[in-house]
Design a protein around this nucleic acid. Structure first.
Length: 196
DNA sequence: GTCAAGATTAGT
DNA sequence: CTAATCTTGACG
């Protein structure tokens, strides 16, 4: 097992952390099993300046972990149905987080399949809501300090710049100018990326 | 207290 | 394209 990423890794500008997460391993301990996926797609979110961010209007009960210390998980529910996983960045007081949008399954695929009945391998971890379902993550995992016993990141093999691509973020058309920022990062050509 | 909208997904 | 499903947070 490679080294675990912790607070200092995330204590940097979110636009540096986000692309640096590509190729890393997200690992989950679930019922004695190790579930792991290679991160292939992420999005960076900021604070008051970012009209697409949950933190755009300042701290609230839901987003407060985004304003806290780096290296924690921020998990929220969306559309009353799905949960999404973020990793908090930047020093305490500055709201910033990286949304994990897609993984390439690496370990524990049988468990992921059981958690995603009726779906194909590609659909287990492609999309922010799907990956949480495949790793059995929900709002109980909000605010965890990473590494935590049930969830952590491992160094893995960082993705070379040449294989990285950028685009505007998905699903934030309401955010005006911020909707056009190139804050989405993904591995070029990887079939587990949720959208080309 | 009210209510519109959502960092999505699955199904027609 | 649209329904599902319910929490959040802005507003008054």
């Amino acid at each position: 097992m490679s080294e675990a990423l912790s607070r200092e890794f995330f204590d940097r500008p979110v636009l540096r952390v986000a692309p640096d997460l590509l190729g890393r391993l997200l690992v989950r301990r679930y019922r004695g099993r190790r579930l792991a996926g290679r991160i292939v797609e992420v999005e960076a979110y900021g604070g008051l300046q970012d009209a697409a961010s949950h933190a755009r209007c300042g701290p609230t009960p839901r987003n407060r972990v985004m304003f806290g210390p780096p290296g924690r998980s921020y998990v929220y529910q969306i559309y009353g149905l799905h949960c999404c996983l973020n990793l908090v960045c930047e020093p305490q007081g500055q709201a910033a987080a990286v949304l994990i949008r897609a993984l390439e399954p690496v370990e524990g695929e049988d468990v992921m399949a059981a958690l995603r009945p009726g779906r194909s391998r590609r659909e287990w971890t492609s999309g922010p809501g799907r990956l949480c379902r495949a790793l059995a993550l929900d709002r109980r995992h909000d605010g965890l300090e990473l590494p935590s016993p049930g969830l952590w990141l491992e160094t893995g093999e960082p993705l070379p710049r040449k294989r990285q691509a950028r685009s505007p973020r998905i699903g934030v058309a309401y955010a005006g100018e911020a909707a056009r920022w190139l804050h989405r990062f993904y591995e070029r050509g990887n079939p587990f990326v949720s959208r080309p």
